[in-house]
Each structure stands twice: as structure tokens, then as C-alpha cells.
Amino acid sequence: MSMPYYVAPEQAMKDRADFARKGIARGRALVAIRYIDGVVIVAENASQSLRKVSEIYDRIAFAGVGKYNEFDQLRVAGIRAAELTGYQYSRDDVDARSLANDYAQLLGNSFTHGMKPMEVEILVAEVGGDGSQDEMFHIMYDGTVIDRPNVCALGGESEAIQTRLASEFRDAMSLAEALKLGVNALSGADRALDAQSLEVAVLARGDRRRCFQRVGRDDVASMIAG
């Protein structure tokens, strides 16, 4: 009988983390920024139909980078968890923090016990009654949850993008200002991004129950130009 090779736990975790990070770094990044009416999410995405950003519940949005089938599975799981809670109890009982915790459990479990870790990073954002109650949770491939108060970057080169965002962020920006900040942070100094390669959505406070809205490419183009 052959014995399996001994691999130190530190090494096994490092290998898994390297594997996940490599997968995530291959994809394009996305950012989320708080603005005066809520949260705007800007993703670099050439596809019009395969979405990275989507609606989870009345005040909650989801965004994912990395392997599409994996974060899409997480997106649907989030919608299910939210709808089941809302149906069983009340729509007011659905919140981003408990969703983020559930996601963290799922990702953490897959990282330590799965055949392979999931090659994704996800964002769960929620708008509150006013800006001070907005929340953004950045969840890593290993289940680490980071609470981001104002800005959040996910995906390849996310550290550089996060730094660019944090240095330029101001409270109570307009949608156009926040969008421009997001686009500039994503593109960096060396290249420009146009509306055709962007997917933009907002969680906007207002009279409507459902706060999630996509921003069309024409509107994005005019806001970037303006």
C-alpha cells in the first residue's frame, strides 16, 4: 500500500490560496463606491448578458469576480437565502450582514474541505435609510469577510485599485462623480475604459421597494463624458 505524501498544513493552505488567487487575478476587476443616494457598482465587463452585478433583495446587491459559474451559483444561493427568510418572516428581516456571514461559511468550507477552493471574490452591499447605514462586505475566496465603509475593490490588482479609490473618495458624491472615480480607479493611469466595456448598477434609496437598478450604457457614456 502506498502512503500519501505528507504536506504541512501551512503549505496546503498556501497552495490553495495561490490557486484561488491566480484564478481571480485572471478576471477583470470591479469596484463599489458609496455616493449620496446609495452605492454604485462599476464592473469591467464586455458582455451585455453575462452579469457580474445583480439584485439579491429589496436593498441588497451582489457582485462577483473570478470564475463565472462559481459566483453565479453563489448569487442564486444568496437570492434563495434572502427570499426564504423574507417569505418565512418579513421582508425587513433580510439583511446584508447575515448574508455575508452565510457566504463566508460557504466559501470557508469550500476552501478547507472542497476538492478545490472557489476562484471568486464577492461583494454584498446594502443601502440603509440614510448614508450612515449603508454597508459593504467584501468576502474573499477563503471566507475572510472585510467590512468596507466607503469603497471596495474586487478582483485582479484590487489592492492598487483600492488605494486609488480610498485616496480620491469624498462623502456625498453625485452618481456621475462616483462613477468617474470608479472608472478611473479601474483603468489606472495607462489606459481608458469606455461605456461599452462597463457594467454599472446602483442601489439607490428612494420611494421604491426595490432599490437595485441597472444603469444603461448610454447613460454611463454621458455621465463619463459630462
Partner: peptide, 12 residues
């Protein structure tokens, strides 16, 4: 109501 919205979100 939940079913219609759930379908819309899951299927896009």
C-alpha cells in the same frame, strides 16, 4: 408575488 420576483432575479 415572491415567485414572480424570484424568477426574475434568478433568470435575469
Amino acid at each position: 408575488q415572491v415567485q414572480l420576483e424570484y424568477y426574475e432575479k434568478v433568470q435575469g
